[in-house]
Design a protein around this nucleic acid. Structure first.
Lengths: 141, 141
DNA sequence: GCTTGGATTTAGAATAATTCTAATTATTGA
DNA sequence: TCAATAATTAGAATTATTCTAAATCCAAGC
């Protein structure tokens, strides 16, 4: 199961972290799976509203937090301002174009990247953000 | 020169990116060098006020942006909310305790960490954030 | 050394991002 | 079915950052 696409699977994943399955969580997760462009909470809110016009801001944040807690979604902070969200749970890092704001997932080949593991600090996960200029923007200048 | 501690050096570093030397920029940089605890802009503002009571919020942001642009300071986003700032320009990654919020710099031994370099994307810098639980917090639980 | 233009600073307003609150609704377990 | 708890909602509140307009400062040219 790459992504929990049916209700039973999603429900189970939520339950293992103490969350309930709700249509709103389903909806927010579907929005993330539908277009992998690392949207902000605001953007997710506006996309979710199309399928579920009653959904609120607070609920979008609640759903995102639940999905992040049960490891179905990653929260990504690439710059000052709004957080972005990513449903790709494979090992990968984020390439961020400081000029146009585009975000690209780049897979981490196993073993290529070793973060130091200091004694005593429990490592849960890590996030690598690479800043620079994408091909398109490089051409323009 | 590990850090530009005198005015001439700092002034030159600023000038190479098109910025002027100002007492405010000196002050903000000194605040960062004085206590390496990865403060937020707000925290920097309140520390800077002690030496320079007239300094404003906007100026702190302006100074931080200038220092980041001329590569004297790194901006670090570890979670939702306020950005943090770090004057350590050695290659290192940030260990963030999700329980108490503490941030630790951990040096990256040369070559140990290789981020992939996709063709066409110009890499300017990268930032590795490691999330988990620090020794102190692990003990408490 | 005076002048002028652009960079910088300031206070405070404005905006953006997130969290909180209180009331309501939904779901789970006894 | 009922009670307890989790989740949702609208909207207010808070936090973080950016913007604005006026004042100040500084560097370069005359």
């Amino acid at each position: 199961m790459k992504h929990p696409v049916n209700q039973a699977d999603l429900s189970e994943r939520l339950a293992t972290s103490g969350f309930r399955f709700t249509p709103q969580r389903r909806c927010v997760y579907d929005v993330l799976l539908a277009k992998r462009d690392h949207p902000t909470a605001e953007e997710i809110y506006s996309r979710a509203k199309k399928a579920m016009p009653e959904i609120s801001h607070a609920t979008v944040y609640n759903c995102l937090d639940a999905l992040v807690s049960c490891r179905l979604v990653r929260q990504v902070q690439l710059e000052r301002g709004a957080a972005r969200f990513c449903p790709n749970m494979e090992e990968h890092c984020h390439y961020y174009c400081d000029q146009c704001g585009a975000v690209f997932d780049v897979a981490l080949t196993e073993g290529a990247t070793a973060v130091p593991r200091p004694k005593g600090f429990r490592v849960d996960y890590y996030e690598i953000a690479v800043h620079g200029v994408c091909t398109d923007c490089a051409k323009k200048k």
